[in-house]
Each structure stands twice: as structure tokens, then as C-alpha cells.
Design a protein around this nucleic acid. Structure first.
Length: 318
DNA sequence: AAATGTATCAACCGCTCCGAA
DNA sequence: TTTCGGAGCGGTTGATACATT
């Protein structure tokens, strides 16, 4: 309905962590009078809080039937099973776990269970095995990408050659990010190098020469890529959840999570920008002599932010 | 020992749902 | 039927504790 939540925007009301005294006031009031209207409760209870904050404090922490402490393995398994059935319906899941709150379950999922599934090669979104990275690599050849979606081709055609080249590098960067952060233990190098034998992915990254990769035919024909097959998108979807950084074996391909100094200029807009401005923008690009994989995801995000191309990039990135 | 990175979790925010008028 | 307002939900943030370098 678009109505702004009055209470949370009222600056005169206290926010932040609850004190013991506030907790006591809330507990005392509810024990004596019951909950009633959350909107009226804080005033009646002598609390300088909004009703919403009181409700949250009560339902997530102070309620006497809440079970505090760690989740048992059985509870964790139940949550995983229920998540398969209900998705992110935390309140529904919580209703099956006496004494546990939706907030607590949500936190457990986001900080723990989700990562456990990923490490096991399970996509937490659909509980299906994450596609083998071989699939991604097999998708790289040109034939897999051609003639699928027009906007990509359209957008890139409008860029100056250098920008297109730069965009190629950025997409490559993300492929490398996928490769180097994927939890999948086994991949092969069938379209990137000589070996077709499955190897540990850390070893693969160690073998990849960025310049060699850039000379791969798929990249020189990047402008003809018009859509990402579903499997490719699935892999991209899973990458944002993998914070793990490769160990020292990766040498020059160690992934950095935040290299603000390498922030990238936005892709040149396809509308309303003069060629001169485009070239100025290109010329001002700071492209350090740095392994591609060390560019940051944040920088990629900057690239995405450009209004004219955001829809395009987001399709690929998310 | 200090700095930095990561994990955890309480609390907030913005939105939708739903019942009452 | 429409509007309004309270309740609840899911996503996100920020503080803090803990781990690692």
C-alpha cells in the first residue's frame, strides 16, 4: 500500500540494542497485561520504542518459550529439508521448529547452512547439485554463444572498439572469478589448455596464462555472444556465495576481494554521449598491469551501474 | 601485539498481507 | 469495493566476537 512505517522513521524513538531495563519493562508489561496492540504497548509499558521494535524483541528474544543456544544437527537437517519444500519462508520453517524463531533460522541459514551446502556442491537455491564446471568451460567456445540474444550484440556494437575490448576483459575476469571461487573440486581444461584430464581447480588456475586466455577464439569473437545459456547463468548465480580465496598455489591469480584502487570506469553509454566523451572516457581508463583475476567484483559492479547498459550487464552478472 | 578479515546475530527497514470500517 | 492501519515477513545492516596473518 505504500504507507511509510511511521514508527521506524520517528527519530524521537530509541533504536539499537535493548538494555536490560527495557527488557524488564517489556517482560513485566506483557506478563501483566498480555501483548494487546503492539502500537500502543510501548507507551503503556513506559518504553521509548516503536511497537514494531517491541514486537521484534519479544518474538525473537524475550518470549519465554524460545529455545536459546546452538542448533542440533537434527534441527539443521530439518531446516534444510524444510527449505527445500518452502524456500525462504522462514516463518513457515520456524513453525516446524518449536522454540526457534524465523530470524534465528534465517541467520543460521545465511551464515552457516547455505555455505555448508555450497561446499558440498549443492546449490542452496534449489538443493540441486551445482553443474560441473566442465559445463561452463564447454560453453566457452563460440558456437555455444551465437545467435541467442540481440541486446548484447546491439550494445557492444555501439561501443568503441577499445571499450568492447575492455568489456571482454571484464567478462573474462568474471569467468576467472567463477573458476577460482567455485567449490567444485574437479574440472578439466578442455577448452582452455592442452590437458583434458580432470585436475584440482587450484591447479588449473595456476596453469592459466591470462594472455593465452585472451587469445582464445571465444574472446576475439565476444561481440557475437548474444545470451548466456541457462547452465552458465546457474554457475554465475552460485559464484556470489563463495567467499573462499584460493591458497598460495594460485600464484599470480590470487583473487582480491576489494581493490578499490582498480575501480573501473562505467561502460560508455549507448545514448546521449558524444564520441569525444566516449574516447575521453576510454583514454582515462586505468588498466593496471595486473593479472585479470585480481580486479575486484566491486569494480565490476561499477561497470554494471551504468544506466544504459545495466540491464544487459545484470543479466550476465546475476 | 596489532591489524585485518570473517562469522554471527540482534535489530532495522521496507514491503505485503489481511481484517476492519 | 475501497481505504486504512496493524501485524508479520524477508532482506539487509551494523556491531561485536573470534580467527588469522
Amino acid at each position: 500500500m505504500g504507507r511509510s512505517p511511521r514508527s521506524f522513521t520517528d527519530n524521537s524513538l530509541k533504536k539499537g540494542p535493548w538494555t536490560l531495563e527495557e527488557d524488564k519493562k517489556l517482560i513485566d508489561y506483557i506478563q501483566k497485561h498480555g501483548k494487546g496492540s503492539w502500537q500502543l504497548l510501548p507507551k503503556k509499558a513506559g518504553l521509548n520504542r516503536c511497537g514494531k521494535s517491541c514486537r521484534l524483541r519479544w518474538t525473537n528474544y524475550l518470549r519465554p518459550d524460545i529455545k536459546h543456544g546452538n542448533f542440533s544437527p537434527d534441527e539443521e537437517q530439518t531446516i534444510i529439508d524444510l527449505h527445500l519444500l518452502h524456500g525462504n519462508k522462514w516463518s513457515t520453517i520456524a513453525s516446524h521448529l518449536p522454540g526457534r524463531t524465523d530470524n534465528e533460522i534465517k541467520n543460521l541459514w545465511n551464515s552457516n547452512l547455505r555455505k555448508k551446502l555450497l561446499r558440498s556442491g549443492i546449490d542452496p537455491k534449489n538443493h540441486q547439485p551445482i553443474p560441473d564446471v566442465n559445463l561452463l568451460l564447454n560453453l566457452l567456445p563460440i558456437s555455444s554463444f551465437t545467435n541467442l540474444m540481440n541486446p548484447w550484440k546491439y550494445a557492444l556494437k555501439l561501443q568503441a572498439d577499445q571499450v568492447t575490448e575492455f568489456a571482454k576483459n571484464q567478462v573474462l575476469q568474471n569467468i576467472l572469478e567463477v573458476l577460482s571461487t567455485s567449490p567444485l573440486p574437479i574440472i578439466s581444461t578442455n577448452c582452455l589448455g592442452e590437458s583434458h584430464n580432470p585436475i584440482q581447480y587450484g591447479g588449473l588456475i595456476n596453469q592459466i596464462d591470462p594472455l593465452q586466455l585472451l587469445s582464445n577464439p571465444v574472446l576475439t569473437n565476444w561481440g557475437s555472444i548474444e545470451a548466456l545459456p541457462e547452465e552458465f547463468a546457474t554457475i554465475f548465480n552460485s559464484m556470489e556465495t563463495i567467499p573462499e580465496i584460493l591458497d598460495n598455489q594460485t600464484n599470480g591469480f590470487r583473487i582480491s576481494k576489494s581493490h578499490a584502487e582498480y575501480s573501473l570506469p562505467a561502460l560508455v553509454s549507448t545514448t546521449g554521449t558524444s564520441t569525444t566523451n566516449q574516447m575521453d572516457s576510454i583514454n582515462s581508463m586505468h588498466i593496471p598491469n595486473q593479472p585479470l583475476a585480481s580486479y575486484s567484483i566491486e569494480s565490476w559492479g561499477n561497470l554494471i551501474d551504468d544506466d544504459a547498459s545495466s540491464y544487459l550487464w545484470k543479466d550476465i552478472y546475476y
